[in-house]
Design a protein around this nucleic acid. Sequence first.
DNA 1: TGACAAAACAAACGACCGTGCGATATCCAT
DNA 2: ATGGATATCGCACGGTCGTTTGTTTTGTCA
Lengths: 215, 215
Amino acid sequence: MVTGMGRAAARLSHGERTRREILDVAVQLGATEGLEGLTIGRLADAVGLSKGGTYAHFGSKLSLQLATVETALTQFQEEVVAPALQHPPGVEQLRAFTDGYFAYLERRRDRGGCFFTAAALEFDDRPGEVRDALRAAVEARDAVIKGALGAAVEAKELPRTTDVDQLAFEVAALCVGANVGHQLLRQSDALERARRALDARLQQLSYAALERRRK
Amino acid sequence: MVTGMGRAAARLSHGERTRREILDVAVQLGATEGLEGLTIGRLADAVGLSKGGTYAHFGSKLSLQLATVETALTQFQEEVVAPALQHPPGVEQLRAFTDGYFAYLERRRDRGGCFFTAAALEFDDRPGEVRDALRAAVEARDAVIKGALGAAVEAKELPRTTDVDQLAFEVAALCVGANVGHQLLRQSDALERARRALDARLQQLSYAALERRRK
DNA sequence: TGACAAAACAAACGACCGTGCGATATCCAT
DNA sequence: ATGGATATCGCACGGTCGTTTGTTTTGTCA
């Protein structure tokens, strides 16, 4: 008795494995067709299952959408955030994050671009759990930026007077701007432009700090 | 014979008037629910017509979507672009444009935000006439920015060495960044931050120009 | 191997989708 | 006032949506 499904017991149950396969495909389809446009029937076809079998893993479309957002967030944390956090906090960590994000954009160019930017703008006017989850994800991304910037100020890489929130807003804007240029307008140099803008902004701040220190 | 419908003859035919009413509602619904999620039945309900009667004005959903994009573009030109072009070309015109755009965002906060940002990110992976139209609209917006910046360089408000395309990218990024902050994250200061970032960037360039001239 | 739970399937449901069509109502020129 | 074009309606179609249900396959442990 008691099949031992104590959640951490079974390494990876059969059901859990296919559930993850479904969600991997769902993240891709969701980024291209939208989270609402993503259909259970098409998702089932894409993963090679029946509609009913696919549906049974979630029980409702809302639950599927939430699980998809969560999966995309996990992927993003692994692909972009975690590697960036390996670098020492400060300007270097910020650059590691933005470079990682731009690489993420490049990898996903033919798979719908940044999952969160697309989904966030789709749901920004649709109250509900999905929007809340997306908002939390975007805010988590901003927190990483703010963390790196705060450390940079603390390490005196940036002037003590730096408005971290303001600068974080600008960095986030460059990220989403790069997304639009890269994904919709297909500008080949969008990522490079974002990089250059960030460079210029950081250099300006350091320069201003030097000037101020000189007096 | 020849009912005299020479396109510019009739002041505003009955059909044309309701067609415009439909499209006005379509722009609003499209910004909140997405251009694909926008449904002919719901659109008809919202405007108080029958589904068939509404549909007859366009003949296909694609045609409705294209007309909706065109209507939104016309509104944007009237609300934002035209007033900006009243100002003398250069930095002042650029500020008039961005301020007009931010006011446009504020007006539409409860109506789906910027129609083009939302629609562009929805269709950036869906080839077809709708995407082409949206791409053209976004590029037209960028052209306004570049035009003002080019004039600013010509009028020596910005250094001769200014990379206009680079700066235009940054301005566009601030616009879409303001959109995300304002619409999804509901940051009350998103528009102000975008304004401040633009100020700082322009001031930096002018300052660098002064420095260079001093030598 | 046999029993039992988990997983996947096939079929069906009501609702709504885009679309087409004939009937009706409304407008305008004569 | 009336006839013909124009505009709107009401209904129906095939298809797909999310969801439910009952059955069959698959996997696992005694």
